[in-house]
Simulated scan of single mutants.
Amino acid sequence: MSMPDRDRLDGRRALVTGGSKGSGKAVVERLRELGADVWTTARTMPVGYQHPDRFIEADTSTIDGVASVAARISGQGPLDILVHVVGGSSTPPGGFAAADEGQWMAELNLNFLGAVRLDRALLPAMVEVGSGVVVHVTSIQRQMPLHDATLPYASAKGALRTYSKGLSNELARHGIRVNAVSPGGIETEAYEGFVDRLAQGNDLTREEAKQSIFDSLGGVPLGRFASTAEIADLVGFLVSDRASSIVGAEYVIDGGTIPTI
């Protein structure tokens, strides 16, 4: 195989969760550019979506949602690539006492158990054919959890990383590579909207508002968050043959936010 061909994903079937917006959307687009036949899932299909036959409307934080995705995908044969991007936090501010039982379970289901259930449904087919690649998107909050409003999210992502590492050790001998990507802040539409609200609410410029966010993280040496395209480029590398001996790793992409080794 020539060097450029090692980047290509022609003839490979992929599933990306949370692919309707943000990093998930960018990953879908990148894998398509590399030649993969990409399916995606999210709760709602965007208006005018260009590949409706490759979109599964489902909530993968629920058991039934995972089952519906697995049924659609399994009917087409084994996957070559599975990328878990879906995630997020909706916990109210106020520290540990503000998160009740329902909030904890919601965060665990969205950020951790959904991936566990989908892997359990789809990976046996990969094992049967003896090849495949899985990427779990974690977060730098598994290493530097923020306690005010995202402790359940951070805890779920920490569990996802531990699970991902253990899974990689089990599946490597079956020809399946499992790795994780750990982003810091990402320049999504939601992030830009948050910057606007912060600036307007505190009489700041957008740059001042962004700097206040960076300061709350202890600084971002690069001076900016990653773009969704940069997240997608990293995932594209990890699922390609260029990463053929990378197993059980977690790649941090945070502009230097985590200050320790």
Rank of each mutant, 00 (worst) to 15 (best):
A99E: 03
L108Q: 01
A125I: 02
I140N: 02
V135P: 00
E128R: 15
N111P: 08
S131P: 04
P92R: 07
A97E: 04
L171W: 09
A115F: 11
A106D: 14
G87D: 01
R117W: 02
M105K: 10
A154V: 05
V127P: 12
A149S: 15
A156Q: 07
T162P: 00
V116Y: 06
L113W: 15
L160S: 13
A154F: 09
E128P: 13
L123Q: 07
D100C: 05
R161T: 06
G88F: 02
G132N: 00
Q141F: 13
P124V: 05
L110D: 01
D119C: 15
V129Q: 15
P92Y: 12
E170K: 10
K157E: 08
P124N: 11
G94D: 14
L167D: 02
H136N: 15
L113K: 03
S131W: 11
L146D: 07
L108N: 00
F96L: 14
L167V: 05
R161P: 00
A159G: 14
V134S: 06
G158S: 11
P93C: 10
L113G: 00
E101K: 08
G95P: 09
V127S: 15
R161A: 05
H147D: 11
D119E: 12
L160M: 13
L160E: 09
A156Y: 09
